[in-house]
């Protein structure tokens, strides 16, 4: 678990938070802190409350009990400091705007009447980081699903966030692009905290510093401390480690997963 001393200075602190949709409790008394300059992977089964947790951290939903503080502030007050990439954007992919304009929309809350050179420079830098700079002037309507997702990530980066919240950011992109994006998130996590919901446990094991297991309750673990049992408890499912470096398959499932994580990927099936 995250040390007490660390939680006092954490960019995100969640304390005893509960949330329920009508007739269904989704989160019950969860508490954790997100360390600064780290990549925290949020894992758990579908319907376990991962996206709800992100929406609570964005201030879109209000907890029924407990408190959430982002940089010591109420989440809705801290929005301008949060870069967020949704699971799927509400935006019309055929909306008449260029890729650059779509990214500049990420700075709409910070810009004045007109976009300045600094706004454009920030947008272009964000596009370069996601490998989309060459398409800056193209109509966004011409982009593929994966390119569109990279534009949405660029939009979040263009807002110069102090924290990144990513809800399955590579769900619609191909394997190679996903790998580059995860490397980018890992790189970004050296300067700001990055919180990423992901079902891809192999990515979690390769890139994340911390793992937040969410399934109605939540548990924060340093990656090296987490065991396969933790994932099993979190997912409520049978997990199998599949080694892909030539090492024997079917190793001891009770071994600390950190021993395998640099070389192994995890699959999971319903129990």
């Amino acid at each position: 678990m995250i040390p007490e001393a660390l939680s006092a200075t954490s960019p995100v602190s969640v304390d005893g938070v509960c949330f329920a949709y009508p007739g269904r409790e989704v989160l019950h008394g969860i508490s954790f802190s997100i360390p600064d300059k780290s990549l925290t992977a949020v894992v758990g089964p579908n319907g376990g409350g991962k996206t709800t947790l992100l929406r609570l951290m964005l201030g879109e939903l209000k907890p029924e009990c407990g408190t959430i503080r982002i940089f010591g502030m109420n989440p809705s007050k801290a929005r301008s400091r949060i870069g967020y990439v949704p699971q799927s954007a509400e935006a019309d992919p055929k909306f008449p705007m260029s890729v650059m304009e779509a990214v500049l929309a990420g700075r709409a809350g910070k810009c004045g009447l007109f976009h300045t050179a600094a706004d454009r420079a920030a947008a272009m830098e964000a596009l370069e980081r996601t490998g989309m700079a060459a398409k800056a002037k193209r109509p966004a309507a011409e982009l593929s699903g994966g390119e569109w997702q990279r534009v949405m990530i660029s939009q979040a980066l263009a807002s110069d966030p102090d924290i990144l919240l990513l809800d399955e950011p590579a769900a619609n992109v191909d394997f190679q692009t996903a790998a580059k994006l995860y490397e980018l998130f890992a790189e970004l996590s050296h300067s700001i905290p990055v919180v990423m919901v992901s079902h891809n446990l192999s990515v979690v094991t390769r890139q994340a510093d911390w793992v937040l297991c969410v399934n109605r309750t939540a548990g924060m673990h340093r990656l090296g401390e987490v065991a396969s049992e933790t994932f099993q408890n979190s997912f409520g499912a049978t997990l199998a480690l599949i080694r892909h470096d030539g090492c024997p398959v079917g190793g001891d499932m009770h071994d600390p997963v950190c021993k395998h994580f640099s070389r192994c990927s995890c699959g999971c099936g319903e129990a």
Partner: peptide, 12 residues
């Protein structure tokens, strides 16, 4: 007009 939700989250 592009995305109300994201615009609101960006402080618009």
């Amino acid at each position: 007009s592009f995305d109300k939700r994201l615009a609101a989250l960006r402080g618009v």
